[in-house]
Simulated assay, not measured.
Amino acid sequence: MTTDHHGRPAGVTPRRRLLKTLAFAAAIGGMTLTGAPVHAATTWKIQSVWDAGTVGYDLFEEWCNSMEEKSGGELIFKPFPAKAVAADNNALFDSVRNGVLQGMNPFTLYWSGKIPASVFLSSYPAGPDQPHQWDTMFYALGMLEKTREIYEKFGLFYVGPIQHDANIIHSKNPVNSLDDLKGMKIRLPGGMVAEVFQQFGVSTVSLPGSDIFPALEKGTIDAADYVGPAVNYELGFAQVTDNILFGPPGVMSVYQPVDLMDLTVNLRAWNRLDPKLQQLVEDEVRNYSQRHYQTIQQRNIEAMEKFKEAGSKVSRLSQEDLQRFRKAAIPVWYKWANKDKDARAIFDMQLKYMMNDTMGYISEDDIKGL
């Protein structure tokens, strides 16, 4: 090796050696050349209840994959579709509580058996039926803070709601009124929704989304509620049913008109996160909620054309049916509100809002004696 007159390797200047030494020291000490600390990225594994290949999961995956760049490389969301880590909804809930997963993207209603208040954290039969009403309750009327207080009792942090869509019913035979439901066996979510439908002579069955198509195909159920047209078309419902039931004009559904999802994370994982990253996640959930909702609505319009091309026929319940449904639902609201103090606290917020003149959904006569 050739050396200079100081005995150093030829061509290596003192400045170059100094930079190499500083870079090595920075790598060892976790510092940049400017003295700023280098943070190791935090990775969260988050499972959705969307099946892979649906527009819902595609949107979720895209959003998760954007978090690394948005956080400057400090926070990575690793997305998983339904059943990828936790095999069912109960396992999903427990996996996030126990830290096997750091987060989940469920339909909030799924926890009605574990958290009774959750039936009031997504739209329920004949309740508030416009997405902006739910955003108002969460972000302006104190419902978000109360929800977080409830979830913390389970070792969870409820980051925020994610607007999704309405739920609709696909059936083998046409349904033109509530009376036509009598004697039918229908897949419905549990809790309050199932209880109201049972009052109209429906036999209700609870099934995960991935099990609906085979049940309709085999004829073990007559009809199924699931999400909106976009995802339901992708799941093949046009192949096994001929009819779609909506609510009155302007209302896709009378029983779950604003079916909310959410992002819920492990409380310990949340508390370990830097406050600036916590704020980023909260802001991003609100942004994602809007994008998710608008994209689903666009796809719904396209999907309805495809359903019609496949021969599906649309029927609508009447305003009279809506009033009958609400009359049957109100006592069930109170039944669930009285399950525990948390459910009652959430319901009280909503009842006050529904009775405000800006809404006018409920009158004193409607709740007399309850």
Rank of each mutant, 00 (worst) to 15 (best):
A215V: 04
L109Y: 15
G160F: 06
F237W: 03
A303K: 01
G11I: 00
N300T: 01
P79L: 12
S48D: 08
A87T: 14
S203D: 11
N173D: 15
D274A: 14
A40Q: 15
T136I: 07
N65F: 03
A140L: 11
F107I: 12
V258D: 10
N266Y: 11
K276W: 01
R326H: 04
F307V: 00
L156R: 02
A41F: 05
K185T: 13
A25D: 00
A40M: 11
G228Q: 10
A117Y: 08
I76C: 01
G99T: 12
L235P: 05
L59R: 14
V240Y: 03
I221T: 02
Q199T: 08
L33D: 02
S123D: 10
S66E: 11
S318E: 06
I150A: 06
G201I: 02
Q290M: 10
L181N: 07
D211I: 00
I221N: 00
L178N: 08
G250D: 06
I115S: 10
E302S: 09
K327D: 03
K306G: 00
L216V: 05
H6K: 15
M104W: 09
Q102W: 03
Q279R: 09
P106H: 08
M192Y: 04
M349G: 02
G7T: 11
S123Q: 09
D283W: 02
I244F: 05
N98V: 09
D225T: 09
R344L: 13
K276Y: 05
L280I: 07
P248A: 08
I362R: 00
K83M: 09
F325I: 01
G191L: 06
K352V: 05
I115T: 08
M184H: 03
Q130S: 10
D129V: 02
A82Y: 09
